[in-house]
């Protein structure tokens, strides 16, 4: 029983990790309607930045967020402005996919050129300490990620619902043309949203780096999971993405324990394919089915 509880807890903690990595992707997809294949590389870049700042300035990795998140904001905003925006009117979706796939390939290999294939370890700064909660054990760093992911969901929700800019962002997502007719500068909203989405990844990177090794391919693993989470959560729903992340975390943890750790991905992607094909609106989504034929 205790083992089961531990596996379950691990699943939820993993869910927190997946959630914090996926929220930015969900936001960008939900508003800009672009699937950003370079999302994982944003995370990787953020993790390297955290590594460099934490080791270079000898500060706690969490403190680097003050620099990493703004830098990622700029990276995201630049991506939107100079890569996505020129292609927004393209008749063919292939173009946007290739654009972000190209960015992803370029960033990953740039990291390989600059840092080599070796692992960069950000100091864990005490975040690997175990906390004992009754029968289960969790790492301090995991607990922080879990709590911050919930806080981030709440903060974004508040921002989108209660602020004038947040409302404008939602308006653009729901009806781009009408939003323009209200006097909203749609291109600017897209840049802002892309920036915020990337900044969320920056936050995630600073929390993740002390616990996980940083290498050029770090992003690849997470980005595939993040896609799964976004689809599961119902494409663009931030709360849905959080729940989706929990589900995937649990599947990952349970299948890893009961089926075999090398088949976890089969379980995760199997569930993903089933959802995508059988219930394309996601587990928690509504309508928004522009991506499937009737």
């Amino acid at each position: 029983m205790d083992t089961f509880l531990q596996v379950l807890t691990n699943g939820l903690m993993l869910g927190g990790l997946f959630a914090i990595v996926s929220i930015g992707l969900t936001l960008i997809f939900g508003i800009v309607k672009v699937i950003n294949f370079a999302h994982g590389e944003y995370l990787m870049v953020g993790m390297y930045l955290t590594f460099l700042l934490a080791t270079g300035l000898h500060v706690h990795p969490y403190l680097t967020v003050a620099a990493v998140a703004p830098l990622l904001f700029v990276l995201g905003a630049l991506t939107q402005r100079f890569l996505i925006q020129p292609l927004m009117s393209a008749r063919d979706e292939h173009v946007q996919i290739f654009a972000t796939v190209g960015l992803s390939t370029a960033l990953m290999n740039l990291a390989l050129l600059v840092f080599g294939a070796d692992i960069a370890s950000t100091p864990s700064s005490g975040l690997r300490t175990s906390l004992h909660l009754g029968p289960v054990r969790i790492l301090l760093g995991q607990a922080v990620i879990f709590v911050v992911s919930i806080a981030l969901v709440a903060a974004l929700h508040w921002y989108l619902q209660r602020t004038q800019t947040g409302r404008a962002i939602r308006a653009v997502a729901q009806n781009r043309d009408a939003a323009q007719l209200m006097g909203i500068n749609v291109n600017w909203i897209y840049i802002l949203t892309f920036g915020i989405g990337a900044a969320c990844v920056g936050l995630a990177a600073s929390l993740v780096a002390p616990l996980y090794p940083t290498q050029p391919t770090s992003g690849t693993y997470f980005v595939l999971i993040a896609f799964v989470v976004v689809v599961l959560g119902g494409l663009g729903s931030i709360g849905g993405a959080f729940l989706g992340a929990m589900v995937i975390g649990l599947i990952d943890s349970l299948s890893g324990f009961y089926i075999g750790s090398d088949l976890r991905e089969v379980a995760v992607f199997g569930v993903f394919l089933l959802i995508l094909i059988l219930r394309p609106s996601g587990l928690f989504g509504r309508k928004n089915l522009a991506h499937v034929s009737p």
Partner: peptide, 25 residues
């Protein structure tokens, strides 16, 4: 201001929010 063909409301917002978006200018 253009009131577009086919209404083009913000479907997931309340009527009040829709109206307030109208006053964005």
């Amino acid at each position: 201001t253009l009131i577009p063909e086919g209404r083009q409301l913000f479907p997931d917002m309340t009527v009040r929010e829709n109206l307030l978006m109208g006053a964005f200018r």
